Amino acid sequence: MEGGLRERKKQKTREEISAAAMALFRERGFDAVTVAEIARAAEVSEKTVFNYFPAKEDLVAHRGAELTKALIDAVREQPPGVSVIVPFRQMTEALLDAVEREPVESIVAVPRLVMGSQTLRQRLYLGWEEEAAALAPVIAERAGLEPDDFVGAMMARVLSWTHRLIFRAAFTRLLAGEDQVDVAAALRIEAARAYDRLERGFG
């Protein structure tokens, strides 16, 4: 019971720091905000900020790491005989549900920050490689391959980039002012085409 309460308090602190950081980043841009300012806004020490987020970039990039972990868990938990593509397709469908229903700003906030910061772009590229390195052996195992098999590494990158391209198209069109319902509907068609083609190829 006590351990559960401690974990909830830690999660609450983590969320409060993240929310304070994102509010400042949206207002002034990522590069213009210091960790000291984030700490003051969240009413914690700088040391506490770094305890939860080892680098300033992690205040933005941690969302990607959380999604990668959830995706790896989903791939591992698929029943035998179910395509490894299914979790990626489901992830993209969930994204497009959000594109259709969530406030536009909540979808474009992080891409807008990344577009305005070379530091964040570099961290994003590193994160993509970390994601591929984590996914590749899991996908290889599901496909009956050795963990370091080249085909597993290729599949991980193709599937990740299929989702990433849909996301990129979504926020680009939303930033251009297109209606979010129309954007979601159009990209559902494109996502289905892409994943159907991959099903045939990987099958």
Rank of each mutant, 00 (worst) to 15 (best):
R142A: 03
E66F: 03
A94V: 06
Y195T: 05
L95M: 13
A132M: 05
E16M: 04
E129S: 05
Y125V: 14
Y52Q: 11
Q180F: 03
E105M: 02
E130P: 00
P87A: 09
L120Y: 01
I72T: 12
I72F: 04
Q11M: 01
A20W: 08
A70S: 12
E131C: 10
Q118L: 04
V49W: 07
L187I: 06
R63D: 07
L71H: 12
D148I: 02
V108Q: 06
K56G: 13
A21V: 07
M1S: 15
E7T: 11
S117N: 04
V60F: 07
F25M: 11
T48Q: 10
D31I: 07
L175Q: 15
I17Y: 03
E43S: 15
A42L: 09
A74F: 11
A70M: 04
I107E: 02
R112V: 02
V75W: 13
V99F: 02
E199T: 09
R40T: 07
E93A: 14
E7C: 02
A19M: 10
R28I: 01
E100G: 02
A98Y: 00
E43G: 12
A136K: 07
L198N: 04
A153R: 15
P147D: 11
D149E: 12
V33F: 04
P147W: 09
R157A: 10
R26A: 08
A109I: 02
H163G: 12
K69T: 12
P87S: 05
Q78C: 09
R123H: 15
T172A: 15
D148R: 14
A186M: 10
T162D: 05
F202M: 10
R14V: 00
A41Q: 14
F88Y: 13
V138E: 09
A133I: 08
V114Q: 11
D148M: 13
V82I: 03
V158F: 04
G3R: 11
A70V: 02
A65W: 09
L124K: 12
T34R: 09
E37Q: 08
D148Q: 15
R142E: 04
A132K: 13
R112A: 11
R142V: 01
G64T: 03
